[in-house]
């Protein structure tokens, strides 16, 4: 480890040690990279479990995305602030404590202000703790980078995760129950003539297949992702 760097901690001082500005090209890349080139779900294939579980309808997917954005941004910032204080041997435990406290906070707030949503998401809010993306970003990024950068990285990855989640939920709700956001969008005359909802879309296997199709489409457009040889 570089001892010189340790003596001058970048405690909360946004961009003091780095030469680039708040929204430099490098920092913007932190936001945009996880959306496409380095998407946590479609490229790193992390956080699949929740992508299966809560994508039956659009609404819980959006709430889940919002919660994950909050948890990831906060936990990345907190860990980045503490990164020069955390004892190396227990760092994973510290990550867990920080993430689970944030999740407990989200849960409490939902129960008080959005009771129906909290009932709908029930255990899945708690399962944010086990979302490998959160833990992965803390270990891989926040532990070694400044606060502002970690914040952007957290937001970027959470949005990258959320975009796929919402996309999958969109198709599953539309094709599976003919609704969007709980409202019927497939017109009645289609049902009366020949159209039937695809019940299979509501089951978890179709979430995997939908994610697979999204990966396929993404790779056929993004040449960087195609493995050589």
């Amino acid at each position: 480890m570089n001892k010189k760097n340790n003596k001058k901690p970048t405690f909360l001082f946004i961009g003091r040690n780095s030469t680039d500005g708040i929204f430099s090209k490098k920092n913007k890349k932190l936001l945009s990279d996880p959306l496409d080139d380095n998407n946590p779900i479609t490229v790193q294939v992390l956080g699949i479990c929740s992508a299966l579980a809560i994508t039956v309808q659009l609404k819980p997917a959006v709430v889940m995305t919002a919660s994950v954005i909050f948890v990831m941004a906060c936990s990345n910032v907190i860990i980045s602030i503490l990164r020069n204080l955390i004892p190396n041997r227990i760092r994973i435990i510290v990550f867990l404590v920080v993430i689970s406290s944030l999740v407990a906070l989200v849960d409490q707030f939902l129960k008080a202000y959005a009771y129906d949503v909290s009932k709908e998401l029930s255990i899945f809010i708690g399962l944010i703790v086990t979302n490998c993306i959160v833990m992965g970003r803390l270990e891989a990024y926040a532990l070694g980078n400044s606060v502002w950068k970690s914040f952007l990285d957290g937001i970027g990855n959470a949005i990258g995760y959320g975009v796929i989640l919402i996309l999958v939920a969109f198709f599953r709700e539309l094709l599976g129950s003919g609704n969007l956001w709980g409202m019927q969008v497939v017109p009645d005359f289609l049902y009366e003539s020949w159209y039937v909802n695809n019940g299979l879309m509501l089951l978890s296997p179709m979430a995997l297949i939908t994610v697979g199709i999204i990966i396929w489409i993404q790779r056929s457009f993004n040449k960087k992702l195609i493995e050589k040889g």
């Binding site: 406290s101 407990a104 906070l105 409490q108 707030f109 129960k111 008080a112 202000y113 009771y115």
Partner: peptide, 13 residues
């Protein structure tokens, strides 16, 4: 922090 939040939000919950 957690105890404080939980106590504050309890009436609404």
């Amino acid at each position: 922090i957690l105890a404080f939040t939980s106590q504050t939000l309890k009436p609404m919950q």
